[in-house]
């Protein structure tokens, strides 16, 4: 196989994997029982999805700088979602929202 097609296959696989993680994260957001567990789904799975999508796009980039630019988006989004996740969890606790427990069911 030529290296160009190899790159395309790897890129497509990463993009599909990223799409799968976004899907799983959204399913978790809809199915998990309370704000804390939903934050787990949103922060962790979506970041993995974004990482895969960006890596897949970087493989198709025309130049090295475009590839680096795409990959730099990931740590920025990571920092934002880590901060936002903590802020929402802290606020939820300050409002007195008790975490969902299995025994409550």
């Amino acid at each position: 196989m030529r290296s160009a097609t190899m790159l395309e296959v790897a890129s497509a696989a990463l993009l599909l994997l990223g799409g799968f993680f976004y899907f799983a994260g959204t399913v978790g957001l809809l199915r998990f029982p309370d704000v804390y567990t939903r934050l787990h789904a949103l922060a962790k799975v979506d970041n993995l999805g974004l990482g895969c999508v960006l890596a897949g796009l970087a493989l198709q980039a025309d130049s090295l700088t475009v590839a680096i630019k795409l990959l730099l988006i990931w740590p920025l989004a990571l920092a934002a979602s880590a901060g936002v996740g903590y802020a929402i969890a802290r606020r939820a606790e300050a409002l007195g929202i008790r975490p969902w427990r299995k025994e409550d069911q």
């Binding site: 799968f20 993680f21 799983a24 994260g25 399913v27 978790g28 199915r31 998990f32 029982p33 309370d34 804390y36 567990t37 787990h40 789904a41 962790k44 799975v45 970041n47 993995l48 999805g49 975490p99 969902w100 427990r101 299995k102």
Partner: peptide
């Protein structure tokens, strides 16, 4: 971590024990 939450979310009955 991402993989773990993804599999939890897609299970027929998410097996959570939060604390």
């Amino acid at each position: 971590g991402g993989l773990q939450v993804a599999t939890l979310a897609l299970r027929p009955r998410p097996d959570l024990a939060p604390a």
